[in-house]
Design a protein around this nucleic acid. Structure first.
Lengths: 157, 157
DNA sequence: TATTGTTATACTCTATAACTATA
DNA sequence: TATAGTTATAGAGTATAACAATA
């Protein structure tokens, strides 16, 4: 497979006559390249909003939860010690806050500030726009199919 | 859309009775979550081989090219100054080498060492296996469809 | 002057190990 | 003892700005 390519400025293939199918990359390269494309879009959106992809995901997790550090780390696939810095940097920017847990003297609860919520909302809307733009050249039927297949794959279907 | 989730240890949905379709996440979340899934698989494979995802991509690019630093940076979407460190660290591990360009006294050509080539081959084979495993629960027809749709999307089709 | 590449610098992100405080 | 979280430390990855050497 190719872990390369999907460069930001790939030489575009010649505009194909309508109806000419693209080469099938095979499931491996197709998914790998698509993932780089999507991640690139997310990275661009995050940067436009002064965030990294991981910070964007962090805000996303917090939109409907007030988890502790450990739970947050589990959600993002990080070590708890990595969470400390991530949360501290976001807290320094008033995007979220730590509150002592009422139940457990050791624990904290992490929650969005209004600013963090606004930023999360804006960035996620922009991200949705970018991702939709990636599918702009698909027909409606293709988009529907892709959505369903990707959903199935994500659901471990 | 949700930039969260696809956690490494997501609570699995109940095993659906065969034939029950998964919920359609919509094109945005489906593609976002799929991209995290694929990137997670690539990250795991890279780590298993002592590499990061970007190093894996770097070796991938070099499998059929001997580019200069600038061209490499363009392919990976990085600044040329970022390439210096990336290439230096890989060179220190004997995965690649810099050779002075015969044509241009300012330029270098970056090429894989035999070890780098072996590692690239092994890691990419493993990555292909992991990605295929992600699609293990799709039917053959679904996999074929997904491959074609993703190829179309990647081709800006 | 423009281009190729490196260096200096600063920051984010990440993990491991050791620590504190609470349960 | 076990758990929640932080700190100390080290390293990778990234960008910007300034630089050297060559074209």
């Amino acid at each position: 497979m190719s872990t390369d390519d999907v460069p930001p400025d790939e030489a575009l293939p010649e505009a194909a006559p309508a109806g000419t199918p693209p080469p099938d990359l095979g499931i491996v390269d197709a998914l790998a390249q698509m993932s780089f494309l999507v991640q690139g879009a997310l990275g661009k959106v995050a940067a436009d909003h002064g965030l990294s992809v991981i910070q964007l995901r962090l805000l996303g997790v917090l939109r409907d939860r007030e988890p502790g550090m450990q739970e947050l780390a589990r959600h993002l696939g990080l070590d708890k010690s990595s969470m400390t810095g991530l949360v501290t940097r976001a807290e320094r920017r008033d995007l979220l806050r730590r509150t002592p847990s009422p139940d457990d003297g050791r624990a904290v609860r992490v929650s969005l500030t209004p600013q963090g919520r606004d930023l999360a909302r804006a960035a996620e809307a922009a991200a949705a726009g970018e991702i939709r733009a990636l599918t702009a050249h698909l027909t409606g039927a293709q988009r529907t199919q892709l959505s369903l297949l990707a959903s199935t794959l994500v659901a471990r279907g």
